[in-house]
């Protein structure tokens, strides 16, 4: 069976390996250069008090890659489309299931071998891409960009591996149910995208109960919750009534009259002035320390769904007529 799977997919395997390999090499090399640039800039900052170069990492030099790397969230979809959807639908379309299911290998064994290898391949491709992206992102992560940002969370750590396995399982199951590659492909793209967006926006923020902090307004600054995921909150006036809102990370507003001496042109000084008057804020957030917990929770969800999809495919293939 392994021989059949290899013979059938060696061409596709070679193409995928070449693409994934090229991406990995690009990311590892540029990641290493960027990291060494960062460390020498850091060293200059420490010794020569010349910290100008550090700012570069926020912007220009690597912008092309910085915008491209988040696109690797599409890798699982591509795997689902090229590896998952045609796996069974392609057999039905060409009629070859009639050939292979009348050889002496039981249909179940054929299915388990084929699906098993496809999912293993998905996990390998997903891991290589995720590991390269995570390695490439070391510098950005060190600079304190918050890793819960979907553009980072979705392409680093363990979730991309689970996404890849899920997308391929979705393609396989859609192919088993629909028996046509094109519709199965549509279901894979739509299904994966929808699930990811729903999870990102509605479920992921609630994997664990959020934490709440009640702090002087002056402490509102990116550094305080470095690496955490902030959902905003309220600004409280000295009497403890809601006076305004903290929106997302560092933006805030007050929707009532404030002491006129605090109305100056510098947002930092406004915050400090209002703090001195007793203004506080209540903010909700997921602490940075939960990053890996969230990664594993989300990976677990996708892997569990992948298992359900494999079961559906199994039932379809073993229960329905060929």
């Amino acid at each position: 069976m392994t021989w059949l799977v290899w013979t059938q997919y060696r061409r596709q395997f070679t193409y995928t390996a070449a693409l994934v390999g090229a991406l990995a090499v690009l990311l590892i090399v540029t990641g290493a250069v960027m990291s060494s640039d960062y460390h020498s800039a850091l060293a200059r900052c420490g010794t020569a008090r010349d910290c100008g170069d550090l700012g570069l990492f926020q912007g220009s030099g690597w912008s092309a890659l910085t915008t491209t790397v988040p696109l690797t969230v599409g890798v699982p979809v591509l795997l689902g489309v090229f590896w998952g959807a045609p796996l069974l639908a392609g057999e039905y379309e060409q009629g070859t299931q009639q050939f292979v299911w009348t050889q002496s290998v039981p249909r179940r064994r054929w299915l388990l071998a084929k699906v098993g290898w496809a999912l293993a391949a998905a996990a390998v491709w997903g891991s290589v891409v995720a590991a390269s992206v995570t390695w490439w992102s070391r510098t950005e992560n060190a600079l304190g960009h918050h890793r819960f940002d979907p553009f980072k969370f979705d392409v680093q750590g363990v979730v991309p591996v689970a996404y890849a396995v899920f997308a391929v399982a979705l393609g396989i199951a859609a192919g088993a149910v629909l028996r046509r590659t094109l519709p199965a492909l549509g279901v894979t793209v739509a299904g994966f995208t929808t699930l990811l967006l729903v999870l990102q926006n509605f479920v992921r923020p609630r994997y664990l109960p959020e934490k709440t902090a009640n702090l002087p307004l002056s402490r509102l600054h990116g550094g305080l919750f470095s690496g955490s995921w902030q959902f905003g909150g309220q600004v409280l006036d000295p009497s403890g009534k809601v006076a305004g809102h903290v929106i997302g990370g560092n933006d805030w507003n007050v929707q009532q009259a404030v002491p006129s001496r605090c109305l100056v042109n510098d947002p930092d000084r406004v915050r400090r002035c209002l703090s001195a008057d007793g203004y506080r804020m209540v903010v909700h957030y997921q602490p940075a320390s939960r990053y890996w917990t969230f990664q594993f929770i989300e990976a677990g969800i996708f892997l569990a769904l992948a298992a359900v999809l494999v079961f559906i495919a199994y039932r379809c293939i073993t229960r329905r007529d060929a």
Partner: peptide
Amino acid sequence: ALGGHLNAR
């Protein structure tokens, strides 16, 4: 070759 892998006989 494929048949050889899928059949005992």
